[in-house]
């Protein structure tokens, strides 16, 4: 009988426990609010890799004259000590498979501005009248001397610089493609040609200067952006400028996540001769020959002239920076 009582008490307590558990635990749970707000983020990717390499000039350049080559000649230009880097009429960076190259590669998650700028120390013979050393002239008294002169109407810079921008197999040759782009505007093209802008006869420095002169700043920008469209896709705010000091700057802004994979090659050429038409015949421009010869004599130290600069050099810098 007592056993039954104990079991009854136990069963009663168990039932009470279950009832109170349901009642009290619910009550406890309703006294506290717990909320949280959280967020996380990571550092945005940069990962833009730049390179600048190459050498524009050589100590010697292979000859192209067949007779000279058949006679056993090998180089048409060679520095006297085999160390100095030299240039001369008829040489180019292509001849020695050289050229300065800058590359930019990356797909950053931030807006970026890629700038390539170059400082060029160019060979120049300033406008003026100079002695013509291409021809010895016999005087009335029977003596020979360099008595003829030639006159340069404007500064003469024999080396034509060019910049080629390429992405994959697509490339933009600044001097040549600007000429092609300008062909869409015959009036502007005629004015530009009158100033010396030719299909392949003009340094890109001159090309830009002439283009700005004939098209104005806005027109120039439109022409350049139209010409560049296929090469630099996804960029904006293109800038290409040159200064009288021989500094060129090209920059382009890229939106976040736009792939940058470009190669910029700076090349040069000193034409052996410039062909002009005289009385219906194509002949080498004697003034250009005279100017080249004069510069060669200054370089040799035969003559001294402060109006002549006979050193050449180029330096490229290519920073990429984040845009705020």
């Amino acid at each position: 009988m007592k056993k039954n009582n104990v079991m009854r008490v136990f069963a009663l307590m168990l039932a009470l426990t279950l009832v109170s558990v349901c009642a009290i635990s619910g009550t406890f749970a309703k006294y506290v609010t717990r909320v949280s707000g959280e967020d996380a983020a990571r550092v945005a990717k940069w990962g833009v890799l730049l390179t600048v390499e190459g050498n524009n000039f050589g100590t010697k350049y292979a000859a192209e004259d067949e007779a000279y080559l058949e006679a056993g000649g090998e180089y048409s230009v060679e520095s006297y000590n085999g160390e100095d880097l030299v240039v001369a009429p008829g040489t180019s960076s292509d001849l020695i498979d050289a050229g300065m190259t800058a590359t930019v590669k990356g797909t950053p998650e931030v807006a970026a501005r890629y700038t390539i700028s170059g400082v060029v120390d160019d060979i120049v013979l300033k406008a003026g009248t100079y002695t013509d050393y291409t021809e010895l002239v016999k005087a009335d008294d029977g003596t020979y001397g360099y008595t003829k002169e030639f006159t340069l109407e404007k500064d003469y810079s024999p080396v034509k610089w060019n910049l080629v921008i390429s992405k994959g197999t697509t490339e933009f040759n600044v001097a040549e493609d600007l000429y092609t782009a300008l062909s869409a505007y015959p009036d502007l093209l005629a004015k530009a040609e009158a100033l010396g802008f030719g299909e392949s006869g003009c340094s890109f420095f001159s090309a830009i200067e002439i283009l700005k002169k004939v098209a104005g700043n806005d027109g120039y920008k439109n022409i350049v952006e139209a010409a560049l469209g296929n090469v630099v896709h996804g960029g904006r705010n293109f800038q290409l400028d040159v200064t009288d000091d021989g500094v060129f700057t090209m920059s382009y802004d890229f939106d976040p996540n736009k792939e940058m994979d470009y190669t910029f090659e700076l090349s040069w050429e000193w034409a052996f001769e410039q062909i002009i038409t005289v009385d219906g015949e194509e002949v080498a421009d004697p003034i250009v020959d005279a100017a080249d010869t004069y510069l060669g004599n200054v370089a040799a130290g035969v003559i001294t002239d402060d109006n002549a600069n006979t050193t050449i050099g180029a330096e490229l810098t290519a920073p990429a920076v984040q845009i705020d």
């Binding site: 707000g37 959280e38 967020d39 996380a40 983020a41 990571r42 550092v43 945005a44 990717k45 940069w46 797909t107 998650e109 931030v110 807006a111 904006r236 705010n237 802004d253 890229f254 939106d255 976040p256 996540n257 984040q322 845009i323 705020d324």
Partner: peptide, 29 residues
């Protein structure tokens, strides 16, 4: 607290920072 993209101050380009994968990022500026 963070964002997937942030406007540029100059307005060009539109975004100064934009996550490639759509997750939150931060960067200088």
């Amino acid at each position: 607290i963070f964002s997937i993209r942030y406007d540029s101050e100059a307005g060009h380009p539109t975004f100064a920072v934009n996550s490639e994968k759509g997750d939150n990022v931060f960067a200088p500026g």
